[in-house]
């Protein structure tokens, strides 16, 4: 029996902008199973980020039914959403978004502080070592390269041992080489740790390396395919 982590049933997201309704996600159905590695692709404005935010419980759906880890989150308020996401979801963003005043290690420990989990520094250090930054743990973000910052962000996303990792264009601000390195980390996490990963990307070369690719256009999924390139 495959474990379904997220099940979306005709979900929509409607933004109202100057009295005009923009439907960023349109009646979308989706299932995400344990251990999947999904790349969401599609033109700019197609709703990739919006979808990721909703699946990650960062934002609410407008209509439809969304089931996340056996919770019907469609009607959840932000105060309930935060409880779901802080122990179950990890987030990586295009602009890294580390806290500039905190060192790499402190950035990684921060989610533990908010979640009220024990602040095991050894865990944070081993995660930083795993992403190849064992020698940079006391550096501030501004002392790190873009690729290094994104690796700190990945360690930060993993420190609460989440069930799903969401990454919105994680390689968008990186050169091809560091982009591939980051992607390799995702692949390894998915294969070795059976971590479920959902990411968006504009980069076909990278996107095609995911296990499943979903194409989005105007808020609808236009194709879902298993990747042949996944190794």
């Amino acid at each position: 029996m495959v474990n379904i982590l997220i099940k979306a049933d005709r979900i929509s997201k409607i933004y109202t902008l100057f009295a005009e309704e923009i439907k960023a996600i349109k009646d979308l159905d989706l299932e995400i199973r344990q251990g999947e590695f999904i790349a969401i692709m599609g033109p700019s404005g197609s709703g990739k980020t919006t979808l990721l935010d909703i699946l990650g419980c960062l934002d609410k759906v407008s209509t439809g039914k969304l089931n996340v880890l056996d919770h019907d989150v469609s009607a959840f308020k932000e105060s309930s959403l935060v409880k779901i996401r802080r122990v179950n979801m990890g987030f990586v963003f295009q602009e890294f978004l580390l806290i500039p005043t905190l060192t790499a290690l402190e950035n990684v420990v921060l989610p533990l502080l908010f979640s009220g989990l024990p602040q095991e520094h050894s865990k944070a250090v081993s995660l930083l070592e795993r992403v190849g930054l064992g020698h940079r743990i006391n550096h501030l973000p501004r002392e790190l390269s873009g690729g290094e910052r994104q690796r700190v962000a990945i360690a930060r996303a993993l420190v609460t041992t989440p069930k799903i990792l969401f990454a919105d264009e994680p390689t968008g601000n990186l050169d091809t080489k560091s982009g591939q390195q980051i992607f390799d980390i995702f692949k390894e996490l998915n294969q070795k740790d059976d971590l479920t990963i959902v990411l968006t990307t504009h980069n076909y070369k990278l996107g095609l390396q995911a296990r499943r690719i979903m194409f989005l256009k105007d808020g609808c999924i236009v194709s879902r395919e298993e990747s042949s390139l996944f190794v």
Partner: peptide, 16 residues
């Protein structure tokens, strides 16, 4: 603003 947003994303509650 962005930092506060990201702190919320990684688990900070309103109270935090």
């Amino acid at each position: 603003t962005k930092e506060i947003g990201v702190m919320k994303a990684i688990g900070a509650s309103r109270l935090d």
